[in-house]
Design a protein around this nucleic acid. Structure first.
Lengths: 200, 200
DNA sequence: GGATCTGTCTACCATCTGGTAGGGAGGAGT
DNA sequence: ACTCCTCCCTACCAGATGGTAGACAGATCC
């Protein structure tokens, strides 16, 4: 029988890295969550950095699979954007640490950030091509697909992770508010992206 | 003669907190930047936390004044949005640490985040009222002003701070790219916000 | 039953962290 | 000349941090 300890360590570390940040999380703290000793963590992962690496791999995998599931179930055209946004909002309710980890990975810079972006690169490419195709077909306004993707990413991730900014603009981060925010983001993206109905 | 040391400490700490993060910055590191001893920092600021407080006050003041200057020089209507976006992009080129600090403050949560949002609350209120007025006048599409503000904030700050995500979507963060990004953000916001010309 | 391997532990360690205690140089006030 | 105040320093300290060394229990193999 193989031990499930490394998986449990990664899960606990993901949660803590995603909420308290990498520097803000000590190995002792992660160990305490699992009621094991720090040395057990260092038995499975030779250093804190290598644990981060495993956590990012895990996070990227989970994120990619969630988005993939949403896309598999989605239709065509705008429905795909809709599905992705909805799945991110669902994720933010069920696994807020995961979105937090995305932010943290971006903040830490290389090599963590590079690892993450490399892991989800295929999704980025597909999304980019999708946007390009929609634009070519005249169904979306023309923008640089890469920058558009970054804008969508920033907006959606900001809308679900920036709790304090949310409060600053007078919105309490409740479950009900999440539904409103999702509706608002979708409406906003609609008007930003969808080409105006051809007047001719 | 009063010493300028506290100001220099705050400036150095702002730069480090904004790039490496709060936990990622040690008092020794800040002291080394100024070629003084850590104890001199602790003479002026009784604790690291109180230094953070001073840094956030300073950061919020600088940010507010930059935005205020831009608004004072701006015209009416859409020109005001344009002016704000341009000033943030200018800031991201001249003082990237400042934008980094905004992100860091939001990430740290209370009390740092609260302090920051409190400090710029007047600007938020004015912006909110402006958007509301534009909507009432039929010049912008209707959205929740608070959520709209958060979306704009996320998009613009993301566009200037998320260097690694930028790379992931195939955009190298050069000075030239900054101009393109600014143009793209403005175009995006235009189509998202401006009401379609009344067809009647 | 002995040897080996796996997984977790206890016991340390060096380094770094924020923070305290207190000294001393030099200017200002008297 | 003396004292006081401002400002920065050296010398420490306790606790936390990431990491190492090695013991030990239990399973597995021979």
């Amino acid at each position: 029988m193989v031990s499930d300890t490394p998986d449990r360590i990664v899960a606990a570390a993901l949660s803590s890295f995603g909420t308290k940040g990498y520097e803000g999380t000590s190995l002792d703290a992660v160990a305490a969550m699992l009621e094991i000793r720090k040395q057990t963590i260092l038995y499975w992962f030779p250093s804190k950095e290598s644990l981060l690496e495993a956590v990012i791999t895990q996070g990227a995998t989970e994120l990619a699979s969630a988005l993939q599931d949403a896309l598999d179930a989605a239709g065509e055209g705008w429905a795909r954007v809709d599905a992705v946004v909805r799945s991110v909002f669902r994720l933010s309710a069920r696994r807020p640490e995961l979105l937090g980890l995305v932010r943290e990975a971006a903040r830490l810079g290389p090599p963590a950030a590079t690892q993450f972006t490399t892991a989800i690169a295929p999704l980025v490419r597909r999304a980019s091509e999708f946007l390009q195709a929609e634009m070519d077909a005249g169904r979306m306004r023309r923008h640089d697909p890469g920058l558009l993707l970054l804008a969508i990413y920033s907006t959606v991730v900001g809308m679900v992770t920036e709790v304090e900014v949310l409060r600053a603009v007078g919105e309490e981060p409740t479950a009900r508010s999440l539904v409103r925010r999702r509706a608002d983001v979708l409406a906003l993206l609609r008007s930003a992206l969808l080409a105006a109905p051809d007047p001719r």
